[in-house]
Design a protein around this nucleic acid. Structure first.
Length: 414
RNA sequence: CGGGGUGUGGCGCAGUUGAUAGCGCGCUCGGUUUGGGACCGAGAGGUCGAAGGUUUGAGUCCUUUCACCCCGACCA
């Protein structure tokens, strides 16, 4: 992508009313636009990052047998009345509205009910199970207070996977499979080392659910971490009984602040009971489907990663989700520009994503933008380098610079 | 939803005891610059969040309201 074709611009100042560092940087770098409190639009570079995060999650969900779907944001109330969750006392985050004919509607805050209803069309035999539909969708939640930039919005991207299993054992196996898939997702996003599988309250059908909590000073959750076993306990279930269960003592654990970046939850028959989702087993008996739900918030992850991987110059994206791998800067004469043009074409043809700063700007401005945008490698083409047939490459993360030949540069970037 | 704070060109801000709005960034044009956010000159751009009120006169005082931010409670 050429900067000259990119409609966004960077700014030196962040909006005064935006305090969260992730939103400040993302707005300054032109990745997102704030529509209102807790509601952000994704601009070209931000959309790219979000899509990259989503793609990593998609690959890992597909790898464990997920079937990607796309459910509706508009929700008629009847499914939700079956489960009791249409009631504002039970689910207090609803955005509700009406059809022209007066019928009540809600904007989906989650999708257990509609998906359970939908699956009744496709599940009737034990042969139809297990199945694992999932989707990426904007969820709507009327939070009393949104905050922390992208990390707590009133509309936000969520990956929600649901499991439909024949029995508890089948469910438990898949539950563990999802857990390991989540580990892979966080590893690929570059936050695996600071993300802990965390014991949390389980609801009616399981003793525990599990959250994936990433350590962060801006985290809203308090967890107790055991580094050796790479697990943690959420404050809400930090009791002697739980410690006994896990064979831990308080001395082994350290209190940390963290951001919940995923959760896996055993639903049991809560929704299959409410909406009557049953199958006929091999023995001819009708049985209720055992369900689970598994969430990851791609937009929250984007905010968290922006916040975590940043410094005084701006964003520092992990290579796996950066909007491009290379920020190409040309400095000086027409000859340097022409050489940069050629390099841009060559890198793009080699499948290496490049943001080419082809503006008539001074070097300092280009360098500053490369750093603010957090592109992993900055490649410079300039008159002083041309003389020796060399290119300069600088790592955003380490700030190390190498002067390379054309072939060395391509080898390094491939 | 309780407590606190803030709304003035696109962004960041100033505006005194009330007298019809100014600075920096950005933007446009001209020129000079070109390895760390250049400089000089000339310009454009604001019914001061909204509504009502007090006053000869309101960005400034009063009332109402909306929005945003922070702390708390709640929540992926």
């Amino acid at each position: 992508m050429r900067i000259s074709k990119l409609f966004t611009k960077t700014t030196k100042d962040a909006p005064a009313d935006e305090v969260a560092k992730n939103a400040q940087l993302l707005i300054r770098a032109g990745f997102v636009y704030k529509e209102m409190a807790g509601v952000y639009a994704y601009l070209p570079l931000g959309k790219k990052v979000l899509d990259n995060i989503i793609q990593i999650i998609r690959e890992e969900m597909d790898a464990i047998g997920g079937n990607e779907i796309s459910l509706t944001a508009l929700q008629p109330k009847h499914n939700w009345e079956s489960s009791g969750r249409w009631n504002d006392e039970v689910m207090d985050v609803w955005f509700k509205t009406k059809l022209a004919n007066g019928a009540e509607l809600g904007l989906a805050p989650t999708h257990e009910e509609p998906l359970t209803q939908l699956m009744k069309n496709f599940i009737s035999s034990y042969r139809d199970l297990p199945v694992y539909p999932y989707q990426f969708q904007i969820k709507f939640r009327n939070e009393l207070r949104s905050k922390s930039g992208l990390m707590r919005g009133r509309e936000f991207w969520m990956k929600d996977l649901y499991s439909f299993s024949r029995n508890q054992e089948e469910h438990d196996n898949f539950y563990e499979l999802v857990s390991s898939a989540y580990d892979k997702v966080y590893d690929r996003l570059g936050i695996g080392d600071i993300t802990y599988k965390t014991f949390a309250s389980g609801g009616s059908f399981a003793k525990y659910s599990h959250e994936f909590q990433t350590l962060s000073d801006v985290g809203e959750d308090k967890i107790y971490v055991h580094d050796g076993r790479k697990l943690a306990i959420n404050e809400e279930v930090y009791t002697d009984e739980v410690l006994d269960d896990l064979g831990l003592s308080r001395d082994d654990l350290v209190e940390k602040k963290a951001v919940e970046v995923g959760n896996i939850f055993t639903l049991g028959t809560k929704f299959s009971d409410a909406l009557d989702l049953a199958y006929t087993d091999i023995d001819g008996e009708s049985k209720k489907v055992i369900m689970g739900s598994y969430g990851i918030g791609p937009s929250r992850l984007m905010g968290l990663i922006a916040e975590h991987f940043s410094d005084d110059k701006g964003l520092v994206w992990p290579e796996s989700i950066a909007p491009a791998k290379v920020y190409l800067v040309s400095i000086g004469s027409d000859e340097a520009i022409s050489l940069a043009d050629d390099l841009y074409d060559e890198l793009m043809q080699a499948g290496i994503e490049v943001i080419y700063d082809d503006r008539d700007e001074r070097p300092g401005a280009k360098f500053a933008d490369a750093e603010l945008m957090g592109i992993p490698y900055r490649v410079t083409v300039s008159d002083r380098l041309i003389v020796d047939n060399k290119f300069e490459i600088t790592s955003r993360k380490t700030n190390m610079t190498n002067i390379l030949t054309h072939d060395e540069l391509l080898a390094k970037l491939s």
